[in-house]
């Protein structure tokens, strides 16, 4: 039950993009079409879960016993960079098309604040190992869901005759704002 609450909380109530405003860069950057957004979601899910997991391990097996908590951010970034690099290698091997369409945004997952943010949050919330795993997973699902929804909306907007002044990123930002407003409706759901 607790896990379900964590999932609902991370997906809807504290959605990493629309409520915590983390990871907006890929959210705006690779949401041009649904398949790319799904790919980005999947890649980010992979990185998020893996980094939340290894962050917990590093924190509890290495940093805390040695009293090196001040190295937390530094070492997490190191881990995340490695995981992203690994993902990139893997994608390049398995799915050229996705690799190409994600382009620069794939290595940029490294600097995706959602990833570091989630890793740091799991430590701050003092989650257990399995809880932080679920938390990372929930955040990733929330991220992917919003990415796909937003990509759907943007695909539709591409066909709309948006006034030139607002077409492209501006209308995207307005839409993201409305989406964020909608997610306020889920406040205190859990």
């Amino acid at each position: 039950m607790e896990y379900i609450i964590i999932i609902i909380s991370t997906v809807l109530v504290n959605n990493v993009v629309l409520v915590q405003f983390l990871g907006l860069c890929p959210f705006m950057g690779v949401s041009n079409n649904i398949s790319t957004a799904t790919g980005m979601g999947a890649a980010t899910t992979f990185v998020l879960v893996l980094s939340a997991l290894s962050a917990w391990l590093i924190e509890h097996l290495l940093l805390k016993p040695l009293g090196l908590e001040f190295l937390r951010t530094l070492s997490f970034i190191l881990i995340i960079a490695a995981v992203v690099q690994f993902t990139e290698l893997y994608l390049q091997k398995t799915s050229q098309a996705l690799y190409k369409s994600l382009g620069i945004f794939l290595p940029l997952i490294t600097t995706n604040c959602a990833v570091l943010g989630v890793a740091l949050l799991t430590i701050r919330e003092e989650f257990t190992f399995s809880e932080s795993l679920i938390y990372g997973f929930g955040a990733a699902i929330g991220f992917s869901m919003v990415m796909v929804i937003f990509a759907g909306l943007r695909q539709r907007l591409e066909l709309a005759e948006v006034p030139e002044l607002f077409s492209g990123v501006p209308i995207g930002l307005i839409t993201a704002g409305v989406l964020s407003m909608i997610f306020m409706g889920f406040t205190s759901l859990v």
């Binding site: 929804i149 759907g152 909608i182 306020m184 409706g185 889920f186 406040t187 759901l189």
Partner: peptide
């Protein structure tokens, strides 16, 4: 939820899903 009535949020959320 935190609001007594959520019809607006509900419709808008489904609007977002419509595409």
């Amino acid at each position: 939820g935190g609001f007594p009535e959520g019809i607006g949020f509900a419709v808008l959320f489904m609007n977002a899903l419509t595409p």
